[in-house]
Computed example of a mutant assay.
Amino acid sequence: MEAILSDPAGAVIGLDFDGTLSPIVPDPAKAVIHPKAPEVLADLGAHVLAVAIVTGRPAATALELGPGLADVPGLVVLGHYGFERWEGGRISAPPPPPGVPRAEAELPLLLDSLGLDGVAIEDKGRAVAVHTRRSPDPEGALAKLREPLAELAEKHDLVIEPGRMVLELRPPGMDKGHALSLFLAERAARSVMFAGDDLGDLAAFDAVRDSGLPGVTVCSGSAEVTALAERADIVVDGPEGVVALLAELATAFTRP
């Protein structure tokens, strides 16, 4: 943190979206960014090397759910765990993998065969997520789905990304840690902060540790996932705490 404060022009601030900048909600389509986050990130963006949102969401979806994010100076959104990139109003990405739509086509029949109610399928373009949060027994449904979804993923050359009441089928070869590492090298960063809340963010925590840079990891704490809190340098109370921490940082940059 001292390195970030003393040399903000060399700092990359990396952030997850859901559960970190946006509260977790039963329906992912109804998620919305913390109302103060865009302004706080804009303040940060005026001082640091880069602000990067690293998310499993499509980049365009994160921007839709975060009005004002597109105006953050120098913002980069690494969507689909880094397969996709939004910067300066443009999205770049490789062609979508064929295994995702094939797996998605098989999911309704699979869920029906397991007799699961309240389980939702989310089409994420380059990935497909199965949410159990609205099921009568979310944890039980998640446990029942793990093996069948792992078999389906293997069949279509995909991998499983576990999360908070969700299992996501996505292409292999990229994760938040790899995406963050590549971005740090690209920008020749001199320090790094990363804030996340879920299991997929552990790879980014590893990237901070392995970067060789002065770095700090922040957990957006919740009762659902404790693994990040055990690994984080700083634990705050959900998105409200993340935004408050970032606001303190932005204020510190402007002090004489």
Rank of each mutant, 00 (worst) to 15 (best):
A31I: 01
R102F: 03
E154A: 14
G10F: 05
E248A: 11
A59R: 05
S6W: 00
L49D: 06
D123N: 13
G45T: 00
F194L: 04
I13G: 03
P95G: 07
F17R: 09
T55N: 07
G79E: 03
P23A: 05
A141R: 09
P35T: 06
L149M: 05
T254R: 14
G173E: 09
A37K: 03
H156V: 00
L75M: 08
Y81P: 10
A250I: 03
E230C: 06
V242I: 13
V100A: 02
H47M: 01
L63I: 10
S220R: 05
V235I: 14
V242D: 08
L5A: 00
A153T: 02
V54P: 09
G241L: 03
T61W: 03
L142Y: 14
D233I: 07
L213C: 03
S6D: 12
P73L: 00
A31G: 14
T20M: 13
R209P: 05
S92E: 09
F83T: 11
G66R: 12
A60W: 10
E224I: 10
L63T: 04
A207F: 06
E186W: 06
G79P: 02
D112E: 14
H47I: 00
G163M: 05
V51M: 02
G125V: 00
G221N: 04
R190K: 15
E84F: 05
S6Q: 11
D157A: 15
K144G: 07
A150P: 03
E240I: 02
I121C: 12
V235G: 10
G115M: 02
D123W: 12
L199K: 01
G66L: 15
E161Y: 13
K144L: 06
P162K: 15
L111N: 13
L109D: 15
V159D: 02
A105D: 07
L78K: 07
P162C: 01
A60H: 08
A247Q: 13
G19R: 13
A103M: 02
S181C: 04
D201K: 11
P26E: 09
G163W: 10
L184R: 14
L107K: 08
G68S: 09
F194W: 06
A247E: 14
S181T: 14
T55G: 06
V12S: 05
G140M: 13
T251S: 15
P26N: 13
S211H: 02
H47C: 04
A70W: 01
A227T: 09
V100R: 04
I121T: 13
V166C: 05
D43W: 07
P28S: 11
L199A: 09
P148Y: 01
L109Y: 04
S220V: 01
K30W: 13
G238E: 10
A185E: 15
L245R: 11
L158W: 09
I13R: 03
F83S: 06
A60S: 12
D112V: 08
L21Y: 08
M174P: 12
V77F: 08
D43F: 02
C219V: 12
V32W: 10
A195Q: 05
W86Y: 06
F194A: 04
P67I: 02
D197E: 09
V225M: 12
V25L: 08
T217S: 14
I33N: 06
R255F: 04
G14F: 12
